[in-house]
Design a protein around this nucleic acid. Sequence first.
DNA 1: GCAACGTCGTGAAATTTTCCCGGCGTTGGT
DNA 2: ACCAACGCCGGGAAAATTTCACGACGTTGC
Lengths: 220, 220
Amino acid sequence: MSAADATILLVDDHSVVREGYRSVLQKQPGLRVIAEAADGAEAYRLYKSETPDLVIMDLSMPGIGGIEAVRRIRQWDKAARILVFTMHENAGFAVQAIRAGARGYVTKTSPPESLVRAVKDVLAGKIAISPDIDHELALSRISGESSAADVLTPREFEVLRLLLAENTTEEIAETLHVSPKTVANLHSLIKDKLGVGSDIELVRLALRQGILTEVDLGEA
Amino acid sequence: MSAADATILLVDDHSVVREGYRSVLQKQPGLRVIAEAADGAEAYRLYKSETPDLVIMDLSMPGIGGIEAVRRIRQWDKAARILVFTMHENAGFAVQAIRAGARGYVTKTSPPESLVRAVKDVLAGKIAISPDIDHELALSRISGESSAADVLTPREFEVLRLLLAENTTEEIAETLHVSPKTVANLHSLIKDKLGVGSDIELVRLALRQGILTEVDLGEA
DNA sequence: GCAACGTCGTGAAATTTTCCCGGCGTTGGT
DNA sequence: ACCAACGCCGGGAAAATTTCACGACGTTGC
């Protein structure tokens, strides 16, 4: 392990997956895994104490998720290099991750070589995006599916989040200190803006765009 | 590699995860990974040609999913030993997997030792279930959350699946050759039987119970 | 045979969704 | 300072949906 080795922090809540990362990266000269974390909070803590050259970060994790972890790390170190490596092939997640400050986005379906290449690219200062995600992004542009976070006003987005949570119209009206009528109006307006006809479609859209993640369901 | 080694087929659509499996299992004497598959169809094909002693199977995969792959393999070989190893910590998935013929269910959050132990248990003819899933199952018994597949009649379940797909009431009526009114009635009855008040809750329940999986969304 | 149940449908009441409207405050440009 | 544009809040009423009660029909099982 030469002093010139690039140091890496692995973040994934599945230990077997971390094992896989390590196995792949070990074969590459010049790379050294110096720490591992199983959730966002631990990742943040370890980044501050170890200041690795690169973080490889999963998104779906209990507690503080990957996106939030990216945000926090970047807030602490504007120069942090974070490569998101996740199962989610949705363009929505990629957009969120990059906006949060990630320098790369690679899906887990990619072959190991792609991960290695992305690692090297990010270390070299480049931005690395999976080809399939590039394609997804292009498609979402073409199909014109509006990103909820973009077309909705803050208030509308807030109502959307609460709707997806599990609250009834009345409960949401209660928490927001407005009349149930307003919530119903916003609910209708949101569906209109997002171009969906039913609540079921609304939930599907939210899942696609990563507003609601499957792991959230456990907390119900 | 002695002739007494237990042969293993790995099934997971993420190559890095397979890398992790292999790395963990390699350290164990008496185990030998002889093949890998990235989806259910390939798993079925490889099982028939290789007849391994054990299959380690992921659930979320493109095309033919893990549950269906388990079913097919067991149909071809009633003695097949399949260990499901997945990220899903929902009891619903575990129930489905076991009913389909899996001999074990371990979540990816479990430490590598748990995987190794489960592999040995299943090879020894035992049933291996993660402690966290045991707990989940106990909770779902206590909370009395009705399993959709159990309380719903076949017809109701069919309508539920179509509702979750993306169809409108009219489209479903069309495909089932019944009046839209009947579909609406069933829709209402389903929500009543499952004890949910809104469509949004309905989707959440379906996700928890594995009737709808996040990967299905891509096909929308 | 008949009781129980699943399936399909009607009709009418109850509720919700949707659309249109106005008021109010903030922002930004002229 | 003014006005226009927009976000936010909710009322009212029409339109659509959800829900409930009810009956018919066939099948199953005692």
